[in-house]
């Protein structure tokens, strides 16, 4: 059996009086891509935040690599890409990668090779000496992904990685994610694009802070008796209303 990377058990989270997560239990194993889908405000980002230890859960247990979160040192083994690109515009792509590699604690000797590797994956090798300020939206997104891949982290968390990326590149990125999965990485992805959800190994459907479905796309489609994940999503939302 594959190694368990992330385990959320009966997690509750409130912001003020507003309940964001209600009794969410959810796992992520080595060598799988799990898609987190749900309308905005459903709690996708909050799941990511408690997983990373940015936020503390009010109840339940969160373990990552078998250790209780939040824990600073564990972040070394996690690659994270946020919804916004979060890059330093006045620095070159190389300097951005170098800086975040240093922050991740990649040793100075390994940094050039790591940068080379990450830049190759996102196809930015030729533009690596350019300032990020001159990058197009798609290039920024790719650089942001490259930063998440630095240090070859066993757990990769991507918040809407393909927003604003053209179809060809989106396919390329998903291809790369599948390859990383096959290498044994655990990948957690949130997405709005339903046909992307089909590409995942498992879909976790989140509505109003509750996890209402969590299975392989094909099984969910069968269960809801629909043709694709988009309809699963709509039907689940309809059932709840």
């Amino acid at each position: 059996m594959a190694k368990r990377i992330v385990q959320l058990q009966h997690v509750h989270k409130k912001f003020g009086t507003h309940t964001v997560l209600e009794d969410v239990s959810f796992n992520l194993d080595q060598g799988e891509i799990v898609g987190l889908i749900g309308p905005s405000g459903a709690g996708k980002s909050t799941i990511i935040k408690v997983t990373l230890g940015m936020e503390k859960a009010d109840g339940g247990q969160i373990t990552v690599f078998g250790e209780q979160m939040p824990q600073r040192q564990l972040l070394k083994k996690i690659g994270y890409m946020a919804q916004n690109d979060a890059l330093y515009d006045s620095l070159t792509a190389y300097e951005n990668l170098e800086f975040f590699a240093q922050m991740k604690g990649v040793s100075a000797k390994e940094i050039p090779a790591q940068i080379d590797h990450a830049a190759k994956i996102v196809d930015l090798k030729n533009q690596i000496k350019q300032r990020v300020g001159s990058y197009s939206g798609g290039m920024r997104r790719r650089l942001s992904l490259a930063i998440a891949l630095l240090g070859n982290p066993p757990l990769i968390v991507l918040d809407e990685p393909t927003v604003g990326i053209d179809p060809a590149l989106r396919r390329q990125i998903w291809h790369e994610l599948s390859r990383l999965r096959d290498d044994g990485h655990a990948i957690l992805v949130t997405t709005h694009v339903m046909d992307e959800a089909e590409l995942t190994d498992r879909v976790a459907l989140l509505l109003d802070g509750k996890l209402i479905a969590n299975d392989k796309p094909k099984i969910l489609e069968k269960q809801y008796q629909v043709a694709n994940i988009e309809e699963v999503f709509l039907k689940a939302e309809g059932d709840l209303a």
Binding site: L52, M54, R72, Q73, L74, L75, K76, I78, Y80, A82, Q83, N84, D85, A86, L87, Y88, F100, M103, K104, G105, I147
Partner: peptide, 14 residues
């Protein structure tokens, strides 16, 4: 505002 601080804090930096 750019989110780099958040990204910075998702590394093991103190």
């Amino acid at each position: 505002t750019s989110g780099t601080l958040e990204r910075l804090l998702v590394t093991p930096v103190r």
